[in-house]
Amino acid sequence: MSVTENTDVAHDHVVDDHHDDHPSDSSYVLIALGLAFLTAVEVGLFVLEDWIGDNFGLGSVKIALVALMIIKFWIVGAYFMHLKFDNPILTQLFVFGLVLALVVYFIMLSAFEFSFWNDGLEDQGLPGGIS
C-alpha cells in the first residue's frame, strides 16, 4: 500500500469517527427536552421568587437563574453548535469574543455603578452616582 493510499484510508477513518462523535437525532431531541425543562425551572423560580426570596434571600434566586442560564448557554453551544466535537480553535475563537465582551462591559457598568469611579458623573448629566 502506498503512502497516498494510507493517507486516504486514514483520512476516511478519521472523518467517519468524527461523524460518529455527533449526537444522534434522538439525542438531540433529549437535549432539547432538557433545555425545555431548564426553562420551566427558570420560570418556576420566577413564579416562586417571593417565597424563595423570603426564605433563602433574593440573591439565591438571582444566582440560580444565572447558573441555569449558563448551563443552557453551554448545552446549546456544545451540542447544537457542535463546539464539543469540532476543532478546539473554534471554541477558543468564540470564548475570546465572549470574554472580551464580558470584560469590556463589566468595566463599563462598573464605571457607572461603583461610587468610587462616579465622582462628577451626575454633574455631567450621566447616569450613575451612588451617593
Partner: peptide, 28 residues
C-alpha cells in the same frame, strides 16, 4: 476547516460585543 466556517465563528464572536453593549446598556 473551511474558511467559511472560520469566518462565521469570527462573526459570531464579534457579535457577542454587539449584544454585550446592548445588554449592558439595558442593565444600566
Amino acid at each position: 476547516m473551511s474558511n467559511n466556517k472560520m469566518a462565521m465563528w469570527l462573526f459570531l464572536s464579534s457579535d457577542c460585543l454587539l449584544f454585550g453593549a446592548l445588554i449592558s446598556t439595558f442593565l444600566l
